[in-house]
Nucleic acid binder design. Structure first.
Lengths: 205, 205
DNA sequence: GTCTATACATAGATAGAC
DNA sequence: GTCTATCTATGTATAGAC
């Protein structure tokens, strides 16, 4: 997974690794602007011109750091994935994950928090991803998160841990997504219902 | 919900109701072409030029029937919704829906068939919808399908039938979507797992 | 390193001939 | 009714001045 590992990377990787603080801040500003636009008015609003304008830099500067629009999107997606993966890593390596109900509770809390932190950004990136060509990074992310959870499920004697982990994630995504689309406000109620759904599924298995 | 009921309709409704067979066939051809393009290469491929070309009509003819790209998309979405709604109507008004497990089985079968009939079309339209401005038709569709299912759940003494119906649909969508994205081939296995998830959820409630 | 100006491509939409 | 030709707008990306 090193930089330059495939041709697509040319379209996607940063042009330069910003080592200085000023550059780092500029890159962050550009990404923040991109996230805002995605979140606010969807994928169509993510134009290089609009991002540059909102970030307060010129289009030329943007292209110094990002080789194109795809690179912006890739960076956003990558950040989002890293977030969720970190959260799951913390959970599975914590003591709270010793019992099934605790594990589930923690996963739900993290997942709900993740997807509802910036719901529309999350959904927009999601659908962007589904329009992109099959991406090895996406596959690796799925695998890693599944494996982390599956390992715990396995210790807890849940059968077919990989499939089960995938299903649990799918159920959570489906329910949280629906709630987010419906602008459902009551997060506690959502957490409670997802809990019933996941535990119900695990017990029925 | 009559034609012309809101301003958006101007962008979305057919320009003329094709009464003659020839016109009807042309409209169908255009929609089929649009569906193919959506299905094949996603939303970006749905351009008015491309649709016209693939349908074998000129761009001018296309604009005679559809006032724009949005109208094409709206028509596709409408057709997709009508399909699913019909299927659910058939189920809830059939005898098989008398027991909970039968109801669930029928719903799963219909939902899986619906979303996997043309998976990538289904997903593309889905995300198109989520990018569109809030649409009264979408809301009405959600309400109707929820109400249909909730009525049955209510007869079966399930508590909070509306919320439960929404959750069941969300669970199904989530799992089917994940399977479809992962290009999971085994439909029987998917059906089985969704069944466990849904029944597990209903029993935990 | 950063900006302005601009080239280039493509999409949406219409006008007008037939 | 249908087509071709074309206009307009917009987005990506680069060149070149500073």
């Amino acid at each position: 997974m090193g930089i330059g590992s495939n041709l697509l990377d040319a379209m996607i990787e940063l042009r330069k690794q910003p080592r200085q603080d000023r550059s780092r801040a500029k890159v962050d500003g550009i990404l923040a602007a991109a996230a805002d636009l995605c979140s606010g008015r969807g994928l169509d609003a993510l134009t290089t011109n609009a991002v540059a304008a909102r970030a307060g830099v010129s289009i030329g500067s943007l292209y110094q750091y990002f080789p194109g629009k795809a690179a912006l999107l890739a960076a956003l997606i990558r950040a989002e994935r890293a977030n969720l993966l970190e959260a799951v890593e913390r959970i599975v390596s914590s003591d709270a994950a010793q019992s099934l109900t605790h594990l589930v509770d923690e996963l739900i809390e993290a997942t709900v928090a993740h997807y509802l932190a910036r719901p529309s950004l999350s959904r927009t990136l999601n659908l962007a991803r589904s329009q992109l060509p099959p991406d090895p990074e996406a596959a690796e992310f799925s695998t890693r998160i599944t494996v982390l959870i599956a390992a715990r499920l396995n210790q807890l004697k849940i059968s077919r841990p990989e499939t089960t982990a995938q299903d649990v994630l799918a159920i959570l995504r489906g329910m949280i997504d629906a709630a987010s689309e419906a602008h459902e406000a009551d997060r506690a109620a959502l957490t409670d219902r997802t809990r019933r759904a996941v535990l119900g599924y695990l017990q029925a298995a």
